[in-house]
Design a protein around this nucleic acid. Structure first.
Lengths: 217, 217
DNA sequence: ATCACATTTGACCGACCAGTCAACTCATAA
DNA sequence: TTATGAGTTGACTGGTCGGTCAAATGTGAT
């Protein structure tokens, strides 16, 4: 009957993602999730040993989706500046979509969950820390390419800069969630990003159709 | 008996601040707070009509403390660069102190609460948004002074830049909370900050004891 | 047809949740 | 002395929490 669409387990993960992301881990009960997913509680505990394990599975699912997007955005075929630019656009578009679907700006799911649970549940805390590290790896790699192309000084520490970028994005997403307003991310995220990286975008875009593939040296 | 130290109401607010900040709003029950504050539940509801109202009172208390600190740090008697520098140091020292006291890096209390409740409780959400706006006002004012002294270009939009600074700090605090590690804030926050503002600190500090009061023009 | 096994169901548990209440203490003020 | 009202107490409520369980049902292989 219900197999036609998605499996019970997947349905639980998807529903949990929506409910927890929209509200918070502790504000959403297992009963809530079961009701929304139209799954009986016994079935829930057949697939997940605890509520926390569902949260972990939900994060895994989110991370895989994120990775698929990032692999596309940060593919080597794209000039590094374009990658960051596309990331900024993607953040807005993704958030905008989620916001329409769930009725509220939701920000970064890992940050939301991490902020709530990092001090309580060690496993979730370290999982989130690992996910964040994976995200910054994309930035770091891209920053290295910017260095190789001579667009940013070779002297800067790309690892630190990547952490800074991540913090900036996470912070702006958090503010967007609190204010329930994406306009800053829509109009200013890209600029903030290049400010932080240290690239004068206005100067670069003066040469519109040249130097796009590679501005090597 | 207990009046000797602090009033029941204040004791509840202080205890709630610690417990909620350390864990999260929904993870801490009224019973928990009452037990930790050695207050009976009936007394709790004599002073606060609901748990949410205690949270609001707690935020008020946090904000007053924050304002006292910020008024000192951002006083006009200090050169604007020193103000930001002192703020970075203050963030670390404050977090370090709290971390020792509560056993875990806690980050920004408003961000933590906001992330958890903004989508659920409108009043708390808008209160937090207002508090954040008050914080960015300090940055904005300080950025204007930097402009007046010619240390940053007059062309930059200080309002936006202030929001960027706030997002960066909040984001790094959130990461510190998740990782339970203050080392990035200890060693890199100041540098990140001036990166974002667009001031080359290394260049400035080459002139150690001069140009401290004012580097006008 | 029979078996093994995965899945589903709904009743159930004790603990805990936010919040209520009537009775009590005690200081002050008339 | 008595009346008032702020503060305190602990027992109480109805509902919800995360989690359990035995029994029922479906499914695929032999």
């Amino acid at each position: 009957m219900s197999r036609a669409t998605t499996s019970t387990k997947d349905r639980l993960i998807e529903t949990a993602r929506d409910l927890i992301w929209r509200n918070s881990y502790n504000a959403v009960s297992v009963d809530d999730i079961c009701a929304a997913a139209d799954v009986k509680k016994g079935s829930f505990y057949h697939f997940f040993p605890s509520k926390a394990h569902l949260a972990l599975a939900t994060m895994d699912s989110c991370m895989q989706e994120m990775k698929a997007d990032y692999n596309e955005i940060f593919s080597k075929g794209r000039p590094p500046i374009e990658r960051f630019r596309m990331m900024a656009r993607h953040v807005f578009e993704h958030q905008s979509e989620i916001s329409k679907e769930l009725g509220h700006v939701c920000g970064c799911p890992f940050a939301t969950l991490g902020s709530e649970l990092a001090a309580k549940d060690e496993e979730i805390g370290s999982t989130i820390a690992r996910i964040c590290a994976e995200k910054t790896a994309y930035y770091e790699d891209c920053l290295k390419d910017l260095q190789n192309e001579g667009l940013i000084p070779a002297s800067i520490d790309v690892k630190i800069k990547a952490d800074e970028i991540f913090a900036l994005v996470v912070g702006q997403l958090l503010m967007a969630r609190i204010k329930n307003d994406l306009s800053f991310i829509e109009h200013k995220l890209e600029e903030s990003l290049f400010n932080l990286i240290g690239i004068d975008l206005a100067h670069l875009t003066k040469v519109p159709e040249q130097g796009r593939k590679s501005v090597r040296r």
